[in-house]
Design a protein around this nucleic acid. Structure first.
Length: 257
DNA sequence: ATGTCACCTATTAGGTGA
């Protein structure tokens, strides 16, 4: 089973690009973030023509998450309990024998902004939700855009950014608490020390200058890690394709037995 | 060069969020 996560930065603007990627990479289950559309605007019929069903938790203009799957998926949760007013940011389905959750964590904007303590609380709520709703001994995947740089190696310039948004110890501690529920970062299972990124700012030629961050993760419980065959950050799809504009995030893909 | 992009409302231009 091929699973993936991708912040598409607007599904209406990215639809043709996403279809190009689906035909090329042929994933079985995909968590999408930043749909930036309401549920009724989701193009179900376009994905159906490609062989994918979609479970959607959207909202007008901003945020929004979905799960595409070849097999039928049963939605078990829409929205992070207690945090629904912070936007449509969590969706869980049962599909192909696994519990698959995709999230779009709050950005936080800056450590001085009012969104920052709300971001910290959102991450605490995410851990608490897994404590109450999921079993760490089961086949569980949690993926998405976490908007946290876990360690200095996951960013292009820790000296410049240490203590700032995405790089603060308070964010890192709460992200680690999510991992400590029973998850492994699947990318790090294969590449413990590599400096690879999943997001590059659109501005200033950041992609070309290799100035990125690794903030998009596929996390798996041990039952998933045991079946893991490969993991890659699909940076080819951070580049323009066939004249289409890319998201500022690359997909992350894993193959599971 | 905060040099881009996507969304909105809406006086095809400016504001917001990332």
């Amino acid at each position: 089973m091929r699973v993936a996560t991708w912040n598409v930065n607007g599904l209406r603007a990215r639809l043709d690009f996403v279809l190009h990627w689906l035909r090329d990479r042929r994933p079985d289950v995909v968590g999408l973030q930043e749909l930036k559309l309401a549920d009724e605007q989701f193009p179900h019929e376009v994905f159906a023509q490609e062989g994918y069903r979609a479970a959607v938790h959207g909202q007008k203009s901003w945020n929004g998450v979905a799960v595409l799957s070849r097999e039928e998926a049963a939605v078990t949760r829409r929205g992070l309990p207690g945090e629904e007013e912070f936007g449509a940011r969590l969706l869980t389905v049962d599909v192909g024998g696994i519990s698959f959750t995709t999230v779009y964590a709050p950005n936080g904007k800056s450590i001085e902004h009012a969104d920052y303590p709300r971001k910290l609380r959102w991450l605490e709520s995410l851990r608490a939700h897994f404590d109450s709703a999921h079993d760490p001994s089961g086949p569980v995947v949690l993926c998405g855009d976490f908007n946290v740089v876990p360690r200095p190696i996951d960013g292009w310039n820790e000296e410049l950014h240490a203590g700032l948004i995405f790089h603060s110890e308070d964010e890192r501690r709460r992200y680690r608490a999510v991992l400590d529920w029973g998850f492994s970062d699947l990318f790090r299972e294969f590449y413990p020390d590599e400096r690879k990124f999943s997001w590059w700012d659109y501005r200033g030629g950041a992609f070309h200058l290799k100035r990125g961050l690794r903030i998009d993760f596929l996390l798996g419980a041990q039952a998933v890690v045991k079946r893991l065959k490969s993991v890659e950050i699909d940076r080819e799809y951070r580049k323009k394709k066939a004249g289409l504009t890319a998201s500022d995030h690359a997909p992350v893909i894993a193959d599971i037995e």
